[in-house]
Amino acid sequence: MLNYDYIKPESIKDVFSLLKEYGAEATLIAGGTDVMVNIRNRKLSPGVLISLRGLMDLQYINKNKGYHIGGMTTHRMLEQSELVKNELSALHDGASRVGSVQIRNVATIGGNICNAAPSADTAGPLLVLDAVVVLEGPEGKRKIPVAEFFTGPSTTVRREDEVLVEFDIPEDNSRYGSAYWKHSRRKAMDLPILGVAVALNLAEDRTIVDARIGLSVVAPTPIRALRAEEYLKGKSFREDVLLEAGRIASSEASPRDSIRGKAWYRGDMIKVFVPRMAKLAAERRGVI
């Protein structure tokens, strides 16, 4: 039967001592839109929930030698941030398409990433923005690139005594345009069949200076399509080049059949949406 304690510490130090005290019995809860569902579906039966919602100082979006987003920042805050919309567009695309307004009002980006679903809508964007995850534990902070954060479905490098406190996004993203496509059957309340994020740095002469491609739901973790990125670098921004990049990216994915979509379809859609998102990213960069 559902029976657990709920503790809402006011400082991160208290979080650490509570985690130490309760050990494996404890589960961290941020917005709770995954944790509460898992409890309801009996995939999770914690002895105690330790809420991070007392850590209001972890809710922020700012730009100061790079972009900094607190781990407790809600998707709704990202959606409503002009800074995110204009300079980290892919993240805006991803955050705005999560669930519903009700979900976005409480669900946090830290929670979305720590939950580590292969379908997380902010994962692809953070990958192509080259974001770094800041984890804090009793011994201090450590930084892990998002690309190295996920280890499998629902698993990450985060230790059980650590809290995701921040995302650091390099300043040079201001030279990139970025976009994220959530391919889903419905326009809201859905999980992606496939997520494609692209960030592009384009020279005025339409030469691709740098490209980053993030794919979700096509492997056990969200992945970067590194070969496709390499292929694009130095090439001219042309339809045939983008199509080829899509084909290469598709070959880097290992999608599977599921009730949500067929593997072949996901593979095909990578070919379609890598070019489309590259174009949108370029458009946002103002080059085309």
Partner: peptide, 24 residues
């Protein structure tokens, strides 16, 4: 409704695609 060997595989609104207000 997706049935696999008689079992409903999508018994929820996430995977059963009832249209939303955004699907105009």
């Amino acid at each position: 409704m997706k049935l696999e060997k008689g079992k409903v595989m999508n018994p929820n609104f996430l995977d059963y695609k009832l249209l939303t207000a955004m699907d105009v």
